[in-house]
Design a protein around this nucleic acid. Structure first.
Lengths: 211, 211
DNA sequence: TCCTGTGAAACGGTTCACAGCC
DNA sequence: GGCTGTGAACCGTTTCACAGGA
């Protein structure tokens, strides 16, 4: 039952869930792998393979129940619960999270914000008050933080990651252009805008050479 | 010479370049694939394979010249030039770009910002003045935009993408949780914070089932 | 000796094709 | 007939292992 699930599979599951929620909004009751594939930018076979890792949710000749599959995916992805999230770095990157309406809708609750700038500490920021970075251990412990978002400069990221994990954080979302070294059982995902831009730059540069 | 280069390879090249630039700062002159691998979180063989797609830049028994390899990678990635970038959506996500110092350092020049909110239009925002979204075609044409960053709501993204491409944008960075449909020769990279959080959520949920 | 460059093997993910059930 | 679930074939990527040059 515990097959290793690839990263790309998880991404696609997210897509499927989003598509299903849209279908729920339109009161659709069933959906075929073909329809789901069209939205996720993949193939029907891929959809079925992805889902097959977790069980058999569909009915042959009929498709999948929208409501049931959405529920299953929420449970599989772990978004059928609330996650307590702390943000380190009360800057623009961090505040961008507020613009993602799905962020809260998917159960990610921002319950702490930390910053090292004394001018920011104590200010009310979104749903919470900014704490000093020296309070990290206490905040993570007392508020029972699950996930930590690191929106700090690259040279500070590793140290903060270590402190966060030691204090009890179970997963990290890292915006710094740094390869974090943490224990193997602590999942880390990296978001790096410059790297994404470079991917575009590369694609366009390659094209030139090809033509 | 024009082998198809995978996405993950390009990401690693970005890592290598970053590592090399740090080494340049320390006045290191040579580096081995082993050392580069350690920083990029990969293996020495992988580094050599990645580089071998583009030529033979190293010296056997010695390693790679830091300065030369950095130059080669900049050329390969296309960051040895300037790219003209436009941002649609003058919100928090867009402004987060200013916090990435590498953004400008890698040649990505923000030369236009567009928004549909009349209250924002005309305001000076970072290095430029905000234009109305209706000006998109004119702005893209006149300022010769290469890359377009879409920081707009999901339901607006597809239409804006189409307009941008028609007006001459050559690549898109999309923050909306939407699978954009554009011509095959227009590279698109997607950044979706909620999806990254869901990947963490999934990893932690899986762990529970395993234990 | 040291470290690169690279075929070959191993691995993992995607696609195919079809049996099986509605 | 329609659509799922899944073994098997396929294909791209990573790892291995070693020949060859500094």
């Amino acid at each position: 039952m515990s097959r290793r699930i690839s990263d790309s599979t998880v991404r696609r599951l997210s897509h499927y869930l989003r598509a299903l929620e849209e279908l729920e909004g339109r009161h659709a009751t069933t959906v075929s792998s073909d329809q789901l594939a069209a939205r996720g930018g993949t193939t029907a076979a891929q959809v079925r393979k992805d889902l097959s890792h977790f069980g058999s949710f569909g009915k042959r000749g009929l498709g999948y129940s929208v409501a049931e599959l959405a529920g299953r995916l929420r449970r599989i992805l772990g978004v059928d619960r609330h996650w307590k999230v702390a943000l380190v770095g009360a800057g623009r990157i961090g505040s961008a999270l507020f613009e993602y309406p799905d962020f809260a809708a998917r159960g990610f609750r921002l319950v702490a914000v930390l910053d090292r700038d004394p001018a920011k500490v104590g200010r009310v920021w979104g749903p919470v008050t900014i704490s000093d970075i020296s309070e990290l251990e206490r905040v993570v412990g007392e508020r029972d933080i699950d996930l930590m978002i690191l929106a700090v400069p690259g040279d500070a990221a590793q140290a903060i990651a270590e402190r966060a994990v030691a204090a009890g954080a179970r997963g990290l979302l890292n915006f710094a252009p740094t390869q974090l070294r943490v224990a193997d059982d602590v999942p880390v995902t990296n978001v790096n805008l410059v790297m994404e831009m470079e991917a575009l730059s590369f694609a366009l540069t390659k094209d030139q050479t090809a033509s």
